[in-house]
Design a protein around this nucleic acid. Sequence first.
DNA 1: TACGTGACTTTGG
DNA 2: CCCAAAGCCACGT
Length: 106
Amino acid sequence: MAEAPSLFASVYALVAQIPPGFVASYGQLARMLGAPRAARQVGWAMRCCPDELPWQRVIREDGTIAGGEYAPLRRAMLEAEGVPFTQDGRVAIDRCRWQPGEAGLV
DNA sequence: TACGTGACTTTGG
DNA sequence: CCCAAAGCCACGT
């Protein structure tokens, strides 16, 4: 135990804790993991796309959604969860950004 | 061990 | 608004 969990694994655990209706950015997750520069690795982990991992809640700092051709699909999932969107078609991350102490702290 | 790759972020034009 | 380049770190081969 107490092994050094690869950033890869840490991301999964963190994303899995994001409550519905909230979203987080790659850089923010990386920052929580203690690697403010590992935003790319976070996205890389998402690339695995595990079905157990609601990576749709993980978007860019700008509020835009990544995932290539799946991006528009994830956007619909976020809308179904109650995530607010802007007229620009981007996530209103300013209103639904997951923060420590939010519903996830339950 | 080294190189290549990438679903990011930031700054500048 | 759009585009481009640089910096960054970890994983796979």
